[in-house]
Amino acid sequence: MTGKGGTGKTTVAAALALALAHGGRRTLLVEVEGRQGIAQLFETEPLPYEERKIAVSHGNGEVYALAIDAERALLDYLQTFYKLGSAGRALKRLGAIDFATTIAPGLRDVLLTGKACEAVRRRDKRQRPVYDAVVMDAPPTGRIARFLGVNEEVAGLAKVGPVHNQAQAVMRVLKSPETAVHLVTLLEEMPVQETIDGIAELRAAGLPAASVVVNMVRPELPGEEQLLTAPGRTDEIAHAFARAGLGGARRGGRAERLVTPLLEQGREHAQRVRLERVLRAELSAQGLPVRELGLLSEGVELAGLYGLARELRGQWQNSGADAAGTDGKHP
């Protein structure tokens, strides 16, 4: 799940993880940017670097969460492959781990995507996937193609060795039909433009752009169309306000004084509605399914999050599956 800053991608990612857990499934919600956005959303303590159950869904569904820490991931990795033990701590003191995760080209992103792919591929004793779906709250739209594609670059830089192999394995998962990149946007110009650019970049990199989620869609207003004809009818509107008990309709009356400011608000609204129509059309032209989530007018609270999950589930059910690839791991 990617999206421009401020579009609510963390919220939508969490809602999707909840939706995908519906009916007794198990999902993993992964955070890679160290912001603890998931913990804030679920109103829990900051997540440690371990998979931890943070929510349940209908029918014993479970959502686990993991905040991936690149340094820890590298130490784990070295431990697994090289049995470094206490030497790992010595390296940390030297700043070598910092160095490796920050400076070595893209190694940080390799570790982050690598850890997520490991969770995707992990099997239990009976060879069944441990997670039915893994939802990543990924970096923003402007960086997503580069972030997901970093393994290709690394596989080119490190031409042999385990990093090369690991990078290639990750790319195989990311480019497979098991992966779906969803782009969260608002019906505003900049996020829509970034979304369109992001889709193009993903496609150019051979990564599976799967759908657009328009978040925080304002409810339509009854009488919206009439707002456009409103300015010519100020007297009538003043009388209507008066009828509704808002004061006198005569010039200077309380109802009459409301007309101008409310018409101005109406005009702004109508302008925005027209703009949104254009933006919707631009998004539809991208050839991807476009889904809309309503605005939570009181801000996102836990109840609202579950509401969004229901909405997502409904929409994905109605339109066939592509939430988490085409392998049947969809709600």
Binding site: P222, G223, T229, I237, A240, L263
Partner: peptide, 15 residues
Amino acid sequence: EVSVLAAGLLRLHAD
């Protein structure tokens, strides 16, 4: 129609 319009403006204002 004016009633609908006026009501719409009021709802917009409430939002």
